[in-house]
């Protein structure tokens, strides 16, 4: 390689490394804010702010869904299955994928009593796609899915 090209290559690689390092630093500084939602432990542990618009996520606890027979009001509990859980109240139409054990993200406000008033409910799904027959077969010994994938 001739010296001219070698110099150009060095300059270009420095440029690339510089861009990479600065973006990494920005992302590290923003780290918490890039997360799309607060996990249950943050909601229960008081890290999530009270009284402002936030998003929180968790799995719908089995047997916790309570629908009002007169209106669209619904309440349920979001859990991380390792001890942290919080109640959610919502009024509106739930997404098709909403069901017990499903990963759910709610947008709204957390009040002083630790109840989450949701204005929007989003369903999260994982990458484990499966035909219905196979899902029925493996339903008995299905391993607990981790649709929120937070093992940190």
């Amino acid at each position: 390689m001739n010296p001219k090209r070698r110099t150009r290559l060095t300059v270009v690689l420095f440029l690339l490394a510089g861009a990479g390092v600065s973006v990494t630093l920005v992302l590290l500084a923003l780290n918490e804010n890039i997360n799309m939602f607060y996990p249950p432990e943050a909601v229960v542990g008081g890290e999530a702010p009270v009284g402002t618009q936030i998003r929180a996520g968790g799995m719908v606890l089995e047997g916790s869904v309570d629908r009002d027979s007169e209106s669209l009001d619904v309440s349920f509990v979001l859990t991380d299955y390792v001890g942290a859980e919080f109640p959610v109240r919502y009024s509106g139409i739930l997404p098709d994928l909403f069901r017990e054990g499903q990963g759910i993200i709610v947008q709204g406000e957390l009040n002083g009593e630790g109840v989450f008033r949701a204005s929007q409910v989003l369903a999260k799904h994982d990458e484990n796609y499966m035909p219905p027959e196979l899902a029925e077969m493996s339903a008995g010994h299905q391993k607990k899915p981790n649709p929120l994938n937070y093992d940190r």
């Binding site: 799309m36 939602f37 993200i105 799904h125 994982d126 990458e127 937070y150």
Partner: peptide, 13 residues
Amino acid sequence: SVDWWLTLHQPAT
């Protein structure tokens, strides 16, 4: 992005 942060998008297929 789907591994580093909490996202609504599912992990890679």
